[in-house]
Design a protein around this nucleic acid. Sequence first.
DNA 1: GTTCTAGAAC
DNA 2: GTTCTAGAAC
Length: 250
Amino acid sequence: MSHLTVLRSYAQKRNPAKLPPSLLFSHTDTTITIFDCYPKALFHFLVLPRPSPTLSVFDLASLRTLLRGDKQRARDVLLLLRAEGARVRTSIEEEMRARYGFAWPVWTGFHAVPSLEHVHLHVISADLCAPALKNKKHYNSFHPKLGYFLHLDTVLEWFDAEPSYYDSMSQLKKSRYEPLVKEDLVCFHCARVMHNMPTLKAHLQEEWDTLRAKATSARTKRKLENEATTADAPPPKKVAVDVRASEGET
DNA sequence: GTTCTAGAAC
DNA sequence: GTTCTAGAAC
C-alpha cells in the first residue's frame, strides 16, 4: 500500500472499530476520525468522510474533486465533517482542561494542496507546538491567516457566493497556493517574523506558555475572589503566593 | 506524507 | 566548524 493512499484505506474500512486503537479516535456511519500520525500541535486529528453508494472514493479523492462534483452533495459532506469536527473539538477542549488546566482555540480546516489522497479535515489545536512540526511548509500550511490552511467555515461560504466565485475557488490551483508555504515565518500570535525554524519553535513554545500562565492565573484569581466572599473558607496561602508570582510576569 | 543529506548560511 | 534549509529519494 502506498503511503499516499493510506487515508483512503482507513476511510474504506467496513468495520473501523478494527483499526488499531492507537490510530482510531472515533467513527460514525459517515466519518472516521484518526490521530494524525505526525501531529503538528498538542492535539491533531483528521476527520475522514467514508465512501457510500452515492459518494465514491473518486469523489472523495480530494477537497478539489469533492467540490467539483455535485455541489449539493459536496455541501452535505462538508456539513457532516463540520458536525463531527465540532464533536472532536469538544473532546479536545475537555482534554485540554484535564491535562493543562485550560482550553485554547482549535482550528478546523483543509490544506489547499493536500499531500495525501482522500479528503481529510484537520482538527488541530492552535499552538503548533509539537516535535513533528519541523520545517517551513509544516508551519505555513497551518498558519491561520496565510491562506493555505482553508478554514472549514470559509469553504462553506463559497457555496453561498456567486457561482463564478465558487467555480474559481473550487479549482484550488496549485500555482496560487504552493508559493504561500515558502513565505516568511510569521508568528501567528504576535505577527513577528522569525528567521528560522528553531527560533520559531522556541517562540511558539513561549507564546503557549504565556497563554497558559495567563489562563491559569486568571482562574486562580477568580477562585480567590469567590473564596473571599465565603465566610468559612480557609485562607489559601500557598495559592496566593503563586498568583503574585505569575502576575509579576505580565 | 517522511527521511536523508549536500551545501548554503551563519 | 556547526546549524539550518531545501530538494531528491522513497
